[in-house]
């Protein structure tokens, strides 16, 4: 394993500490219990948005703390859910008279720990569960679809709505709505190495890919030989469209997400493939974002996320945001 490490047990605290210093203008980092929160609490009452999950997906979620997006984020150990005391401490720090909205990706560990955190806080609260990964079937025989790169879109749009002073119920409903309008699916070219484990999570031979991979390197639909970008794009986009069932001339946001080990050059190539294919299907890409936002450590590969846009989602996507990883119009 070759990584920048001093002591494997301190990776998270050293990284968080550095993150706090690098973005001292917009956020603070609390250690033990670990959470990241906005430097400037809004002077008007607002719903406080708290997300979190295992580390290793940076900039998700800490990179989305700031004006227009999250109020706080609770990072767990690498790929492990955070613990309830983190959610409790974050909630007590950032609550602002209008309740707490937890945004949680659909993984058993995250759900359980956020539930336990919610049980011990005194503030009014509710939860939006993100499950945008169309690679996994949502049935009673599985834990259900996973939350992946679409989480950023939920956090951005609901974050914007919360800034307007909307109620907890409005924020919750809008979060569920954006989640339902969003579908994602990805492909991995290599595994990733959890620092504490010191060796790759799974094995892929030179020409193999994991189609429909999860953001922790979990298996997807199938393992197969590498194919051209156009062919991969076609299979992925078709799977997402099958799920989202867009209308003719539907406007969408197209997000290409890198898993951490794939150059931006390839991600933009993928955008080109996706945009063309969507155009051919009479779908209009009117909003776009390309980059490494929901990563899996150093895994190579990437994912497509499509959100069907309506007036409200478009409006809240476009509003100003100022976080470590997303910043526009302010």
């Amino acid at each position: 394993m070759k990584k920048f490490i001093n002591n494997v047990e301190n990776i998270l605290s050293e990284s968080l500490s550095g993150f706090g210093k690098a973005h001292a203008d917009i956020l603070n980092v609390s250690l033990s219990p670990d959470f990241i929160y906005r430097k400037n609490k809004s002077s008007k009452p607002k719903v406080a948005l708290i997300s979190g999950g295992g580390s290793g997906h940076e900039p998700l979620h800490g990179g989305f703390v700031g004006t227009g997006m999250l109020d706080a984020a609770c990072p767990g150990q690498v790929f492990s859910a955070p613990t309830p005391d983190q959610m409790e401490a974050a909630a007590n720090k950032v609550h602002n008279d209008k309740g707490i909205l937890f945004i949680v990706k659909n993984y058993s560990g995250d759900i359980m720990n956020f539930e336990m955190g919610a049980d011990i806080i005194d503030h009014e609260h509710t939860t939006v569960i993100v499950n945008d990964d169309v690679a996994v079937e949502d049935s009673t025989f599985t834990t259900g679809r996973r939350g992946v790169a679409g989480t950023m879109i939920v956090e951005k749009t609901v974050g914007s709505l919360a800034e307007t002073g909307a109620s907890l119920e409005e924020c919750k409903n809008f979060g569920d709505h954006v989640n339902k309008m969003t579908g994602s699916m990805g492909v991995a070219f290599t595994s990733c190495t959890v620092p504490a484990a010191g060796k790759p999570t799974f094995e892929l031979s030179g020409d193999e890919i994991e189609f429909g991979v999860g953001i922790h390197g979990e298996p997807g639909r199938k393992r197969e030989k590498i194919r051209s970008a156009n062919e991969l794009t076609k299979d992925i986009i078709e799977s997402i469209l099958e799920d989202l069932k867009p209308d003719n001339n539907q406007e969408v946001l197209l997000h290409i997400n890198g898993f951490g080990g794939t150059p931006l050059m390839e991600l933009y190539l993928l955008f080109e493939c996706g945009q063309k294919l969507l155009e051919k299907n009479n779908i209009k890409v009117t909003r776009s974002i390309v980059g490494n936002f929901t990563t899996s450590l150093e895994m190579a590969g990437g994912s497509f996320t499509i959100t069907k846009l309506d007036e409200k989602i478009t409006k809240h996507w476009d509003t100003p945001v100022h976080t470590a990883a997303l910043r526009w119009k302010m």
């Binding site: 150990q77 613990t83 560990g109 720990n113």
Partner: peptide, 8 residues
């Protein structure tokens, strides 16, 4: 201190 499903 554990985190994840097993901690909960």
């Amino acid at each position: 201190t554990v985190g994840g499903s097993s901690g909960a």
